[in-house]
Simulated assay, not measured.
Amino acid sequence: MTKRDWIQKSTVAVMLSTSLLMFGESGQAAAASDDSQLSGKAEKVVGLAESLVGKDYKYGAVGPTNFGSAGLATYIFGKAGVTIEDTIAELYRTGKTVKKDQVKAGDLLFFSTKGTGNPSFMGIYLGNDRFIYSSQSEGEVIEKRLSDYMGKLVGARTFLAGSKTAEPAKPPVNNDTESKGDKVIEAGKKYLGTPYEYASTRSNKDTMDCSEFTMWAYREGLGIDMGRGGARSQANYVKQHGHYTYDMKQLKKGDLVFFMSYRGWKESDYKGVDPLKQSITHVGIYMGDDKLLQTFSKESGGVKITDFSGTHWEYRFIMGGRPY
């Protein structure tokens, strides 16, 4: 090899090594930048969450002074520049699954009262065994230790991994159905606290039974007249004129929900009972976020909002649907 050949090869080798080094450093820098962005978003989520402790709970509220269970996360993530869904069911379905023993600050935590089934409330993990959530029972945003709630934890999801914006792929949404459901719910919420009366006359709105309440909600919300019949009559109307399902997970906001007779508050009280062979004795309205809007007794206080999953309402469920 001549001296000239040796110098040319050495020069090429140096240039190649330099290029590879620069490429590697560039790749590492890009990865570090991505990690820094994600870490920065998580820190912002945690900081915002901690600043809202003590704010009032309000069902379905998305801030800035009142928050529902899902609304708290929707508000905080929005302020951090990340768009997410606004219901517990959609957040649980669309987020990236995280193992329970691998949760990180900024991850969403989902709980149910019995520790199984669909989540009924949710919070945001802060790190160091701490999380916050908007508590209906305590009436405000509170901080708790995750270790005290592990028996109720049914899953964790992240929206801060996999992309800079971490926005989940959203499934097609029937906006018309969502809008109609909201109108029914808003019409029904006007009657919160209205006293219950079994077999009410329907001649006035001073008192209501379950089917009179749903009758007025659909009449005033959407102009749909299902007649003056009871729960069973309304179920038949839904089957004849609308869409219905026997799967709780397929329920949409504003759907009518039909139930069998009460047998007890425990799941075991309904063991071996075939819902499709039972008579419909009650109807309510599904609000989303695992909540029901309904009236069922004088003692309960008339028209009110109740939990769905993990209660006797879940075990009594027969079908649900909308009359359009």
Rank of each mutant, 00 (worst) to 15 (best):
I76P: 08
I76R: 09
I76K: 02
I76L: 11
F77W: 14
F77G: 09
F77P: 05
F77Y: 15
G78H: 01
K79Q: 13
A80H: 11
A80R: 11
V82Y: 10
V82M: 10
V82W: 06
T83R: 13
T83Y: 13
I84K: 00
I84T: 01
D86N: 12
D86T: 09
D86K: 10
T87V: 05
T87K: 03
I88N: 10
I88A: 03
I88D: 09
E90R: 13
E90G: 02
E90C: 03
L91Y: 13
Y92D: 13
R93A: 15
R93I: 03
T94K: 01
T94R: 08
G95T: 04
G95A: 06
K96W: 00
T97Q: 10
T97F: 03
T97L: 07
V98D: 02
V98G: 03
K99S: 15
D101V: 08
D101S: 15
D101F: 14
V103A: 11
V103C: 04
K104Q: 15
K104M: 15
K104L: 15
A105R: 08
A105G: 10
G106C: 00
G106K: 00
G106R: 00
G106M: 02
D107G: 03
D107Y: 02
L108K: 04
L108V: 08
F111N: 02
F111A: 09
F111L: 10
S112A: 15
T113N: 12
K114L: 15
K114H: 13
G115I: 02
T116Y: 13
T116R: 12
T116D: 14
G117E: 05
G117F: 13
P119H: 03
P119Q: 02
P119C: 03
S120V: 09
S120D: 13
S120N: 11
M122F: 06
M122S: 10
M122E: 12
I124M: 11
Y125T: 12
Y125D: 10
L126T: 07
L126C: 07
L126W: 05
G127Y: 06
G127N: 04
N128G: 11
N128Y: 09
N128D: 15
D129F: 05
D129H: 02
R130P: 01
R130G: 01
R130L: 04
F131W: 01
I132G: 13
Y133A: 01
S134M: 00
S134P: 00
S135G: 11
Q136Y: 14
S137I: 04
S137Q: 05
E138V: 08
E138P: 00
E140C: 01
I142H: 03
I142S: 09
K144F: 08
K144Y: 07
L146P: 06
L146Y: 12
L146T: 10
D148V: 08
D148K: 14
D148W: 10
Y149W: 15
Y149K: 13
Y149N: 14
Y149L: 08
M150W: 12
M150H: 12
G151T: 11
G151P: 11
G151Q: 12
K152Q: 14
G155Q: 01
G155F: 02
A156K: 01
A156S: 12
R157A: 06
T158F: 09
T158N: 05
